[in-house]
């Protein structure tokens, strides 16, 4: 699980071009949207595609994303439970 969280932090930084953010600056429970990393709705779409492409998870209901993408911790937990690759 900790390896997955590390991997997610690296992917978030790389895919969302967070040039000024280092992996160790993202805490597991930091909110990704709003106050935390300040991600927005376009980033949410990027993350949905990342789940599909890298972990084989298709979000049937985009509203689910609100809970899944709360933090790296919630993302990792969801991926662990649902991944097909």
């Amino acid at each position: 699980m900790s390896e997955l969280k590390q991997e997610l932090k690296e992917k978030i930084i790389e895919q969302l071009n967070l040039e000024d953010v280092a992996v160790d600056e993202i805490q597991d429970n930091d909110p990704l949207f709003g106050e935390g990393l300040g991600l927005d709705s376009i980033d949410a779409l990027e993350l949905i595609v990342m789940l599909d492409k890298d972990y084989g998870i298709k979000l049937a209901d985009p509203k689910e994303g609100r809970k899944i993408f709360e933090s790296v911790q919630t993302m990792a937990a969801y991926i662990e439970a649902n991944r097909s690759r």
């Binding site: 895919q15 376009i42 779409l45 990027e46 595609v49 599909d52 492409k53």
Partner: peptide, 10 residues
């Protein structure tokens, strides 16, 4: 590369 899948908006 992705066979027309997984296209992101940015």
């Amino acid at each position: 590369d992705n066979d027309e899948q997984f296209l992101t908006p940015t």
